[in-house]
Simulated scan of single mutants.
Amino acid sequence: MTLLEMALLAVAGFAAGILNAVAGGGTIFTFSALLAVGMPPVAANATSATAVVLGSVASAVAYRREIILALRRLLPLCAVSILGGGTGAALLLWSGDQVFRALVPWLLLFATLLFAAAPYIQRALKPAAPSRHRRGDLPLAMLVQGLVAIYGGYFGAGMGVMMLASLALTETGGYHAANAAKNLLAIVLQVMAVVVFLFSGVVDLELSLIIAISSIIGGWVGVVAARRIPQAVMRHLVIVCGLALALWYFVR
């Protein structure tokens, strides 16, 4: 690993931290940077997922009050997230580099399009006024969350938007209540996936640490940037870069 490659990973982590703080979608950059320095696709995805966990924890801390209030109600969704995250990680390791490499451009394209649609999805999920939580839709929400968790354990980019859609079945207290629940479930499934990755030995802890530290710094800067840079500008940057990366991997 050269200094230039380490700098590339640090910049990718820093940019991902900013983007995740402002709009989300930073995983696309960290995963692509790891591929650029020569890591095999499966190892790159596992290393990126390990680095992202710290950022999810930081986001959850900001929503600690909402999470504590909803914790008992979210326990069934946490359980399926554990199973789904572990299953997705196991599927990634089982499929291997050749299959995953063929899926990378499609996954990047899907994640980018999902990210582009996020504002419309979030707008549709916002209730006109807070109301009681719906319990009758819990079985369906558990099924959907299980599928989302499998995807999150396998790849992860774009899973936040997918989780907001599944949480709309049970969380009717407003966008921030659903977003807080999303952060908790993201941690649960990511930690389970990371445990599987660590035991498999595919994670490069040194590179993951570089990305994690720089993304935490980027997240702090992102809070400041969010007050100065229009969110639409940041979102368009992610979409353009995501589509460009998907196109690049399609033609390689």
Rank of each mutant, 00 (worst) to 15 (best):
M6P: 00
L8C: 14
A16V: 09
I18V: 15
L19M: 13
V22I: 15
G24Q: 03
T27R: 03
S32A: 15
L35N: 09
V37Y: 05
A43P: 08
S48L: 00
A49F: 04
A51C: 10
V57H: 03
V57T: 05
A60N: 04
Y63N: 11
Y63V: 06
R64P: 02
E66T: 02
I67Q: 04
I68H: 11
A70H: 12
L74S: 05
P76A: 08
G84A: 12
L93Y: 11
S95R: 04
D97K: 08
V99P: 00
F100D: 04
R101E: 11
A102I: 00
V104S: 01
V104H: 02
P105F: 05
P105S: 09
W106G: 00
L108F: 06
L108Q: 02
T112F: 02
A116N: 06
K126N: 09
P127H: 11
A129S: 14
A129Y: 12
S131Q: 14
R135Q: 13
R135E: 14
M142Q: 11
M142D: 05
L147D: 02
V148A: 05
V148R: 03
A149H: 02
Y151L: 06
G152T: 02
A157L: 09
M159W: 01
A168N: 12
A168H: 10
L169D: 05
T170H: 02
G173E: 12
G174C: 11
A178N: 07
A178Y: 01
N179Q: 10
A180P: 06
K182T: 03
N183T: 14
N183D: 10
L185S: 04
A186V: 14
V191H: 08
V191R: 07
A193P: 09
V195N: 01
F197C: 08
S200G: 15
G201V: 12
L205V: 15
E206H: 11
L207H: 12
I210Q: 06
I210D: 01
I213W: 02
S214A: 15
S214E: 09
S215R: 05
I216Y: 13
G219C: 04
G222L: 03
R228L: 14
I229H: 08
Q231C: 00
R235G: 05
L237T: 04
L237A: 11
V238T: 07
V240S: 12
A246G: 07
